[in-house]
Amino acid sequence: MILTIDFQSDFPIYKQIKHQIIEGIAKGELKPGDPLPSVRMLAQDLGVNMHTINKAYQLLKQEGFIQIHRQRGVVIQSEGFPTLTEEYLKNLEEHLRPLIGESICRGMKEDAFINLCQTIFKQMEKGGK
């Protein structure tokens, strides 16, 4: 899996990294137990500060997507991923509301929004194919 960073984006780099790793897991590109690069190595590869990588990794660890071991390094969670909770659903709704609102303001119809969501969902389920 190759991470690509948009340095011109207003979206924070650590979140770009976090989201791309989660997407890689969802697509099956990253499997439970797979190693990830060390903080130092990934920072060097991407040309970003080590603190940026560390922040992304710490969030992924807190949310249950990765494990950080002293000897084995950073690996994709091998003991199961986080489950669907009320807290997650509430957070999901908070993130979807502004996207839906802006889509409506731009003239997008409900069917088009739902079709786009279904297309992206299916792409990720099938490994991005």
Rank of each mutant, 00 (worst) to 15 (best):
I2Y: 01
L3R: 02
L3H: 05
T4N: 08
T4Y: 05
T4G: 03
I5Q: 00
D6F: 00
Q8S: 07
S9L: 04
S9V: 04
D10L: 06
D10S: 07
F11C: 07
F11Q: 08
F11D: 07
K15C: 07
H19D: 08
H19V: 10
Q20F: 08
I22S: 03
G24V: 06
A26Y: 11
A26G: 06
K27I: 05
E29R: 15
E29G: 12
K31D: 09
K31A: 10
P32I: 10
G33K: 15
P37S: 12
R40Q: 15
A43E: 13
Q44V: 07
D45Q: 15
L46I: 11
V48L: 07
V48R: 02
N49M: 08
T52E: 04
T52W: 00
I53Y: 05
N54H: 01
K61V: 08
Q62H: 14
Q62T: 08
Q62I: 06
G64C: 14
G64V: 12
R70L: 02
R72W: 04
Q77K: 14
S78R: 11
S78D: 14
G80A: 14
G80H: 12
L84P: 07
T85G: 05
T85M: 04
E86S: 06
E87H: 09
Y88C: 09
K90C: 03
K90R: 07
N91D: 12
N91H: 10
L92F: 10
E93T: 05
E94T: 02
E94N: 06
P98T: 03
P98D: 02
P98E: 01
L99P: 03
L99N: 04
I100E: 02
G101Q: 02
G101F: 00
S103P: 00
I104D: 03
C105P: 00
C105M: 07
G107E: 05
M108F: 04
K109N: 03
D111H: 05
I114S: 00
L116Y: 08
C117P: 02
Q118E: 13
Q118P: 02
Q118N: 11
F121G: 10
F121N: 15
F121H: 15
Q123P: 01
M124W: 15
M124D: 14
K126Q: 15
K126L: 13
K126H: 12
G127F: 12
G128E: 14
G128M: 12
